[in-house]
Design a protein around this nucleic acid. Structure first.
Lengths: 201, 201, 201, 201
DNA sequence: TATGAATGAGCTTTCATTCAT
DNA sequence: CATGAATGAAAGCTCATTCAT
């Protein structure tokens, strides 16, 4: 990519980032044409290629950028250590909500990458193993789960929570810009519900 | 579609069905070319269009066919009524396994339709509301949940189970031919785990 | 390239070959669009790519094909051995004329490759060292030059003749389909003139 | 073009002239992008268009400028009149060498124009008939050829020499900065050789 | 019924040209 | 005078669809 992209006005940068996050997240790589992207970003076709050289270049830039950005935010908010499991999950949720303020589709985009079927698109990603989700896994692994031991193995339970998260996200955020708050509400309810359950054992 | 399709040898019909189920499920609608389809089905390009008129026609046929087929199997195996919730889920799992015998990718395909981003493909579906999954919901709704009342609302719990199912399926079946049995094993374990939890309340 | 090209009717093959030879020879690689090519060949855009995969693929096919074809003709007509120098040159001229019957621009095309400025186009050529012109050089090198010894070194003289040939060709064949006979007439005159000169020494 | 170009520092003017001469000569009109030109000339994109309005405008300026410049030099060095043919040719060669001092690619550029395949580029030239090469022809036509009468018709012989010149130039100057002296050496040798031949008749 | 050569609309990418600074 | 970000028409290439055999 062309580093001069970062010299653009922040507002324009974010338009160009959000256009791709949203369209790729909802439609997938192949179903998103560069025409759609530039229309959503309100730029010309040439400019997209001026900064990102190719569609795959743009795709991998978005992945890099948003991964780095999200990890920065998460690392700032959530320090390593033995947090109570449910408190940790609520902190995640809060961070996600904050991030969605600026990049509404970022979480759906990151999730969509895991389902992406286009080989070229996947091959373009620089460090596909350095995911935001592995940060989640690490924090969850070291969290304090002792109060809920009878519930089930931590692994089973955290992966269940992951599936639930992804499921709700897809149901709620898809196509709707306002989905973030709905996502937050439903995830909150689930966390409360699970914790009550755990406490009653 | 051309009804004469059903006059073909059953083996050839199934090759043509499985090719599409597998490719669409793994790669999505747009990433699957008609060239790939006919190569996988071992038929000529002309034949595909002879029977299904268009790629969307083929896609919607697959959806119709597999939905109808799965509902037939499910209706036969699982009669309406007040089944114990976990027994019901285990019956579902058994039915799924049986169906995968003949159409290995059918479940992943049906799930992939929910994630499909191509508007034309989605628009081609005849009765997109008549899903296999609504059959699940109906049976679950009328199931006997009385033993687990303190667990949480039935809606929350069944939707949680649905998300878990989808999540495991995607992790396990994608790309792997042998995934079905792994899927069955992991879902079994989850069901056992959840039931033990419910019983201990 | 797709070998099935050779299953096409000979007339269509030759239309597809001549279109490229003529256009690339006159306009060069970059100035020739695939739209022009398919219009001249009276085929669709898709077909060009069906057989040759890319514009460079087509270019290198033409070079391979016409080199092979010309060498076959030349090898058949002109056996190795100590021919009289001017008889040899007249035999070359005759062979060229015969080849132009079927591929009018072949010689101009082969010459244009030497002037081609496009790096991708040149990089696509398979064995750019196996030229038709090196066949000329070999036959000339072993020819009988004894009658003209005082004229000048054989090397100087044959390279002079080569430059003359290229110059006349460009002047005469460019843009004109009927140029072949004019080329033959002028080259004949030059050969006569040079031979008379040599004899008079 | 914008006449204020000539108010620029001579050194900058020459950078802008040599960049185009070299690139167009070696790669042709279409294979030379304005990006390459401004990079070689060490100016901004805007400036090129500020002075020359368009790529074709730049191309035709170069042709005009270098033709005028070369003719000025040639007219100064070579006065009309009955020069001995070979002396004349040697004078040409000397003038060319002097011109290459300032504009190394000028001769190759002028030659490349004759091979240019781009119709727009050719159409942009102002007086394409007023070539440097017609100056050569005129002087040759009035030269003293009496000592070599038996050689052959003057027309044939001078055109032969022209082809040889072009051929050697292309072989030698292309891509190589040091080509000018090699060109001079080889042309000198050819002239000597031809003169010896003519004298021996 | 079955084939695969042939088509052309639509997509990604390039690059001459414009224009705000 | 000078810059280079921005534009969009045109080019190369893909692929669903048609049709002669």
């Amino acid at each position: 990519m062309n580093e001069k992209f970062f010299d653009l006005k922040k507002e324009k940068q974010d338009r160009m980032i959000n256009a791709g996050l949203q369209l790729f997240a909802v439609n997938g790589y192949r179903n998103t044409s560069t025409d759609e992207i530039v229309a959503a970003a309100q730029i010309s076709k040439g400019l997209l290629f001026h900064y990102f050289a190719s569609k795959t270049g743009y795709y991998s830039f978005l992945y890099d950028y948003i991964t780095r950005y999200a990890l920065l935010e998460l690392n700032t908010r959530i320090r390593p250590g033995k947090h109570d499991f449910f408190e940790l999950e609520r902190a995640f949720l809060k961070a996600e909500t904050a991030l969605m303020e600026q990049y509404p589709s970022y979480l759906l985009f990151l999730d969509s990458v895991r389902l992406e079927g286009d080989k070229e698109a996947l091959a373009s990603l620089n460090k596909p193993e350095e995911t935001v989700f592995s940060f989640y896994k690490e924090r969850e692994a070291e969290s304090d789960y002792s109060a809920y031991l009878r519930m089930d193995s931590r692994e089973t339970f955290t992966s269940v929570l992951g599936y639930v998260k992804a499921g709700i996200m897809r149901e709620v955020i898809r196509d709707k810009a306002q989905g973030a708050s709905e996502y937050q509400r439903r995830m909150s309810a689930i966390l409360d519900s699970f914790q009550r359950l755990a406490a009653s054992l």
